Structure formats: C-alpha cells, structure tokens
Amino acid sequence: MSEVDVSQGDIVDETLDLFRANSLFRNFEIKGPADRLLIILILFISDCLAKLGTARIPPSQIEASKLLNTLAVDSFPIPGDANFQLNAHYAPPSSRADADYLRQYLVQVRQELAARLIERLYADGTGKPSKWWMSFQKRRFMNRSLG
C-alpha cells in the first residue's frame, strides 16, 4: 500500500489555486478526465461566489458556510441530464448505478470544495469575504454556469 503525499495537494486545492486564472478563459482544452472534473469544480466555485454575492450584506463565515454547503448538496444536473450545460464534452453515465455513484462523488467533492473555499474567503480574519476573491463573482469560465 502506498502513502499519499498530502503536500502535493489534490484536485480541490488545484481548482482553488487555478480558479482565478482559469476563470478568465473562454476556451479550455480538455486533455483527460481530471480536466473534465476541473471544469465542473471551477464552475461550481463561480456559482458559490455568485451565491454569496447576492446577499444584501456580506455573510459571516458561518452564514457563508451554511449557504455553500446547502448549494453543494442541492439537486444539480450531471452529465447526461437534459439541463447539464456541458453535455457535448462529457459522456453520460452508462447505468443508473453509475449515475448515482457520480452524483454521490460530486456532492462529496462539492462539499469539500465549499469548505476549503470558505477558509480562503475568510482567511484575513475580518469576518467578511475577501474582496479580491469576490471580484470574480461575475466572471463566467467558458461563458458557462452550472446553475
């Protein structure tokens, strides 16, 4: 059994690290499955920032955490669903069981991404989301949205 090197991060950290640069792209070359997941997660971050940006007053860290966790677990389309925005780039699951497994995985990764995003948004200790991160709330990666 091999050990995992946590210092190298994972797809969630990579998504957060690359979000701001990638959010400026209109096109994105898909080279493999990791790129497909990266696209979904970048679009989810956009949806998270947009959700927080709609509040009349900036939410506290606890309020933001609740909002984004709810967003992470709310019903959302997956590849193959009629309302999934990127069906041209994704193969649909081959069975109902595969679709259920994909949805469970995406809920889990969305929850983790939301939790880590909150840590970064509120890292300065002011109790308000970072203006620098929030400035990306209206940006649309590849001119798309998951919502």
Score class of each variant (00 low, 15 high):
residue 69 N to T: 10
residue 33 P to E: 05
residue 90 Y to F: 13
residue 1 M to V: 07
residue 24 L to P: 02
residue 49 L to N: 00
residue 65 S to R: 14
residue 116 R to H: 07
residue 68 L to F: 03
residue 143 N to C: 04
residue 23 S to E: 10
residue 104 Q to S: 15
residue 84 F to P: 02
residue 123 A to I: 07
residue 128 K to S: 13
residue 62 I to E: 10
residue 94 S to D: 09
residue 20 R to K: 15
residue 100 D to M: 13
residue 62 I to D: 12
residue 89 H to S: 15
residue 16 L to S: 08
residue 55 A to N: 11
residue 127 G to P: 06
residue 145 S to A: 09
residue 22 N to K: 14
residue 22 N to H: 14
residue 57 I to V: 03
residue 122 Y to L: 14
residue 67 L to Q: 03
residue 112 E to V: 13
residue 143 N to S: 11
residue 2 S to C: 05
residue 1 M to S: 14
residue 126 T to A: 12
residue 104 Q to M: 13
residue 58 P to H: 04
residue 115 A to P: 05
residue 28 F to I: 06
residue 103 R to E: 05
residue 24 L to M: 06
residue 126 T to I: 04
residue 121 L to M: 05
residue 120 R to T: 01
residue 41 L to D: 05
residue 108 Q to A: 15
residue 116 R to W: 00
residue 144 R to E: 02
residue 41 L to I: 06
residue 84 F to R: 09
residue 10 D to Y: 04
residue 7 S to W: 13
residue 78 I to N: 08
residue 146 L to V: 02
residue 125 G to T: 03
residue 99 A to M: 02
residue 87 N to Y: 02
residue 46 S to P: 05
residue 89 H to L: 15
residue 102 L to M: 08
residue 102 L to T: 05
residue 130 S to G: 09
residue 47 D to G: 13
residue 7 S to V: 10
residue 36 R to I: 00
residue 84 F to L: 05
residue 96 R to N: 13
residue 64 A to P: 02
residue 145 S to H: 10
residue 57 I to W: 00
residue 79 P to S: 12
residue 101 Y to C: 13
residue 95 S to R: 09
residue 55 A to M: 09
residue 75 S to N: 09
residue 142 M to F: 03
residue 136 F to K: 09
residue 123 A to L: 12
residue 105 Y to Q: 12
residue 88 A to F: 08
residue 123 A to F: 09
residue 62 I to V: 08
residue 74 D to N: 13
residue 15 T to R: 11
residue 118 I to L: 04
residue 126 T to C: 08
residue 3 E to M: 14
residue 118 I to T: 01
residue 122 Y to R: 09
residue 127 G to S: 08
residue 9 G to F: 04
residue 26 R to M: 10
residue 99 A to N: 04
residue 7 S to G: 12
residue 82 A to P: 06
residue 33 P to Q: 09
residue 47 D to F: 11
residue 5 D to C: 14
residue 104 Q to V: 09
residue 90 Y to W: 02
residue 111 Q to H: 05
residue 146 L to Q: 02
residue 90 Y to Q: 05
residue 32 G to S: 13
residue 110 R to K: 14
residue 53 G to C: 03
residue 7 S to D: 10
residue 105 Y to G: 12
residue 38 L to K: 12
residue 70 T to I: 00
residue 42 I to M: 04
residue 86 L to Y: 01
residue 52 L to M: 00
residue 110 R to M: 08
residue 30 I to D: 01
residue 123 A to H: 12
residue 103 R to D: 02
residue 143 N to W: 00
residue 111 Q to T: 14
residue 27 N to C: 06
residue 111 Q to D: 08
residue 52 L to Y: 01
residue 24 L to N: 11
residue 81 D to L: 11
